[in-house]
Every structure is written in structure tokens, then in C-alpha cells.
């Protein structure tokens, strides 16, 4: 049993994922560059992925790992479309600052 004293408790993964998620939220709120905002969304997705893998691994059920696989698929598709949108926006406006994208606000 002295082996288990050295193991990482599951709570630590929860705290790590929470911290990483909040860093992502901070980036989305803090930065004005749309590309950085997209990257911070990736950061949030990754924190949730990590928690899913942790729970899957600790409970011995591989469903969570399959879900993470599908989340990766959706994230890749999302990034491809998002970056294409940003490229075409940049061609129109000459900037990726989201403060310039306020036409739909009123």
C-alpha cells in the first residue's frame, strides 16, 4: 500500500483542468485578437479533454477516451472553418481585432 501514497489523486486533475479552463476563459475575455481567442478556445477544449481522460483512466472505462477522440475531430473541423472565416474577414477588413466586427451589434 505504500505505492498508493505516491499516486496522483484524481482531485489534482480536477484542479489542474479547472485552472487551465479558467486560463482559457481569461484569454477569451482579455485578448482582442480573434486568432488568440480561437487558440484560447482550444485551450479550454483541451482542459476538458484532459479531465475526461483522467476520469476514464481512473474508473477503468474507455468510453471517455473515445469521447476525447471525437472532441479532437470536432475541434480540428472547428479550427479549419474558423481560420478560413478569419482569413476572409482579414481580407475584407484588414484586421482581426474583434472590436472592428461590431456590425451585427445593432
Amino acid at each position: 500500500m505504500e505505492q498508493t501514497a505516491q499516486l496522483v489523486p484524481l482531485n489534482w486533475y480536477i484542479f489542474l483542468s479547472t485552472s487551465l479552463f479558467c486560463i482559457g476563459v481569461l484569454g477569451v475575455l482579455f485578448r482582442r485578437n480573434a486568432i488568440i481567442i480561437l487558440m484560447c478556445i482550444e485551450l479550454m477544449l483541451n482542459s476538458v479533454n484532459m479531465l475526461l481522460v483522467a476520469f476514464s483512466s481512473y474508473s477503468g472505462n474507455s468510453d471517455g477516451q473515445v469521447f476525447v477522440f471525437f472532441i479532437m475531430v470536432v475541434a480540428a473541423a472547428e479550427v479549419a472553418v474558423g481560420l478560413a472565416l478569419l482569413a476572409s474577414l482579414f481580407r475584407h477588413l484588414g484586421t482581426t481585432n474583434i472590436d472592428m466586427l461590431n456590425k451585427l451589434k445593432w
Partner: peptide, 13 residues
């Protein structure tokens, strides 16, 4: 989370 002590190594991943 009392039930979960350690990552299982049953060749699941």
C-alpha cells in the same frame, strides 16, 4: 472521489 485511487493500467488506452 473515494472510489478512484489510481489510474488503472489494464491496457485500456
Amino acid at each position: 472521489l473515494g472510489a478512484y485511487y489510481a489510474p488503472t493500467d489494464t491496457g485500456m488506452g
